[in-house]
Amino acid sequence: MRVMGVTLIVLGLAMLAPQVARAETLPPASDSGEVCTVGYQMYRPADCPANGPGSRAMHYWEMGLLPARPLPAAAPDPALAAPDFGFARVSKDSELHLYPSFVDAASDNRAVVKFPGFVFISYQDVVERDGERFYITGGSEIVRRDDAAPISVHRFQGLLFNATPLRSFGWIVESTYPRSAPGSKGAELRTWLPRYTVIQVYDTRQVDGLNWYMIGVDQWVDQRKVGLVEPSAAPPAEVPIGTRWITINLFEQTLAAYDNGRLVFATLVASGIPPWHTRPGTFQVFKKVDRQPMSGSFAADRSDYYYLQDVPWVLYFDRARALHGTYWHDGFGYKRSHGCVNMSIGDARWIYEWADLSTWVYVTDPSGRRPLTRRRMPTMPAAHEV
């Protein structure tokens, strides 16, 4: 069989220079019965048959897979993710006692008591007095060191963009092995994809009621393993052209920030769980607070009580609901809040510094679900959503 564009000398001799000029006078390979090399088919695809050995490579090249084209993105400054305080959790069965001084703490006097529940403190220092150790909280209260255990804060950050990507992208939210084909019948590959791996989507197939996404050459993952951003240069219907807006996708649990039609930032979030849904709609940022305590309880027996000191980088957009930094969990990509949109500390700070009062916030749920609000929300509640 003659190979167009290349003369091969057999019996161990070296390959001669390609005869590309000669190919100009030959009929297309699909008419002549010739087979193209991979390189030639990618150079002159019109001359080659659709089922030649280079057709698969050509298909991947057209999809942007060969060679893989990176997103037009960069990581944000890691310094944004550095918390201003340390944080500690109080045992769920224990009250939190906040004292105005070391003397009061030593004598158990004049304590402000918080109910047992989901309780966290911030602290700026740990000191020792008379053989006992104490936290000095972010608000300068005193807490016994034995009453709360320090926690580590995850420093996940999203991506900054210098151009709007041409395809959907996102993050792995559940560590997984991809499959060689869409559906459970595809062989499980040995390429381990840890949580927060950035992926791009090159093709989508629906199998057994699930969307499967092609994220690499013969690598497929199902929709439950990823949180996606689908870039859109057009603003939502109620958002004026030429402005900034934030899109929150409740189905994908992602956030995307746009400036005059260009994607500038994207990340994973954690929105409200039933019955404390994050409400779909179009809103505007109406208040910014760099840090504040949040607390509340909705059950009659206070079994769901929470108290969180120094919640950072808060942007209120829908009554009590806000975008804010989160130090008490690392569940980004999944619903788990009391109605607010939880972000990592670094991501929340970036959005806080980028957004202005009146920046638009578009909350959408492409699944079509529009949950009813469990109760009427006051404009600025005593008990904040988290």
Rank of each mutant, 00 (worst) to 15 (best):
Tyr40Asn: 13
Pro72Tyr: 14
Ala299Asn: 13
Val285Thr: 02
Pro366Arg: 00
Arg375Tyr: 15
Cys48Pro: 01
Ala322Pro: 02
Ala322Arg: 01
Arg376Phe: 11
Cys48His: 00
Pro76Ile: 10
Ile172Tyr: 07
Thr164Ala: 06
Pro45Tyr: 04
Glu128Lys: 14
Ile151Asp: 05
Asp356Gln: 09
Pro293Cys: 08
Leu308Phe: 11
Phe118Met: 11
Ala68Thr: 06
Val90Lys: 05
Tyr196Ser: 02
Asp130Arg: 10
Ala81Ile: 02
Pro70Ser: 13
Leu357Arg: 10
Glu141His: 11
Pro366Asp: 05
Gly86Pro: 15
Ala23Val: 15
Ser297Asn: 12
Tyr352Glu: 00
Pro280Asp: 00
Asp208Trp: 06
Leu71Asp: 02
Leu268Lys: 10
Pro78Cys: 11
Thr364Phe: 11
Ala270Asn: 12
Asp259Arg: 14
Glu238Asp: 15
Ser55Asp: 09
Gly325Lys: 04
Val126Tyr: 05
Ile248Ala: 13
Leu357Cys: 03
Gly64Thr: 12
Asp31Gln: 13
Ala17Asp: 10
Arg190Phe: 14
Arg244Thr: 06
Thr243Glu: 00
Ser94Trp: 12
Ile215Glu: 11
Met1Glu: 07
Ile345Cys: 04
Gln200Ala: 12
Leu160Met: 13
Val341Trp: 08
His324Gly: 01
Asp301Gln: 07
Asp47Cys: 08
Gly331Pro: 09
Ala50Asp: 13
Ala111Lys: 08
Ser271Asn: 13
Gly183Met: 03
Ser271Lys: 11
Asp130Met: 11
Trp360Ser: 00
Pro182Lys: 01
Ser303Gln: 03
Pro18Trp: 03
Arg376Cys: 07
Val119Gly: 06
Ile215Gly: 09
Pro378Phe: 00
Trp220Cys: 06
Ser152Asp: 14
Ile241Trp: 05
His277Val: 02
Ser175Cys: 08
Ala300Leu: 11
Arg144Ala: 14
Gly64Val: 11
Pro275Met: 08
Asp208Asn: 10
Gly272His: 02
Ile241Met: 05
Gly368Asn: 06
Ala17Val: 12
Tyr352Gln: 01
Trp245Leu: 00
Arg145Thr: 02
Tyr306Gly: 04
Ser122Gln: 08
Met4Cys: 15
Arg319Gln: 15
Ala148Met: 09
Asn342Pro: 00
Val198Pro: 10
Gly261Arg: 00
Gln284Met: 06
Asp304Leu: 08
Thr247Glu: 12
Tyr60Trp: 10
Gly39Asp: 14
Glu230Val: 10
Ile136Val: 13
Val201Met: 12
Gln284Asp: 00
Val35Phe: 07
Tyr60His: 11
Tyr316Gln: 04
Pro182Asn: 00
Arg145Ser: 02
Ala299Thr: 09
Leu11Ala: 11
Tyr306Lys: 06
Arg224Glu: 04
Ser337Trp: 11
Tyr362Arg: 02
Leu210Tyr: 12
Pro366Cys: 01
